[in-house]
């Protein structure tokens, strides 16, 4: 097995898996940041001069909803990070299994005995 070749394949697999994830999460963060900021500004304005001025119940609802949505935003990023970790881990496992498969085939073990993807998962 050629170490440099395996390392190159691992890096290429990671770039392919994670590269798209990074650009999609950036767009999501921008959009959510704008929405949360807009809602915060709206609550402040409406409480001062708009429909929430004399409506304590609705005001409390919107403040609570803003808190829930902020937590939801953080959890979305955390979940996306966990998905990225899973994808990166599996990409590396697939490359390593590919290298082992090539080596085993080289010593005469028939291809039919070696699955295309790592044989076990958790």
């Amino acid at each position: 097995m050629n170490f440099e070749e395996i390392l190159g394949s691992v890096v290429a697999a990671l770039k392919e898996e994670i590269g798209d994830d990074l650009s999609s999460i950036q767009g999501f963060i921008d959009s959510q940041g704008r929405l949360l900021a807009k809602q915060t500004a709206w609550i402040a304005t409406s409480r001062t001069t708009g429909s929430l001025k004399d409506d304590d119940e609705l005001y409390e609802f919107f403040v609570e909803n803003l808190k829930t949505n902020t937590e939801g935003f953080v959890r979305s990023i955390a979940m996306h990070t966990i998905i990225t970790i899973e994808k990166a881990w599996n990409a590396v496992a697939n490359v390593l299994w590919g290298a082992i498969r090539t080596a085993l085939t080289g010593v005469g073990i028939p291809n039919s005995m070696l699955p295309e993807t790592p044989p076990f998962s958790a």
Partner: peptide
């Protein structure tokens, strides 16, 4: 025997190598 050992070793090495978290 050697081939069998190689397969078993590789399988054990890669046990739990692919994961599902979500």
């Amino acid at each position: 025997v050697r081939n069998f050992c190689l397969i078993v070793f590789s399988a054990v090495f890669l046990t739990a190598c692919t994961i599902q978290l979500v």
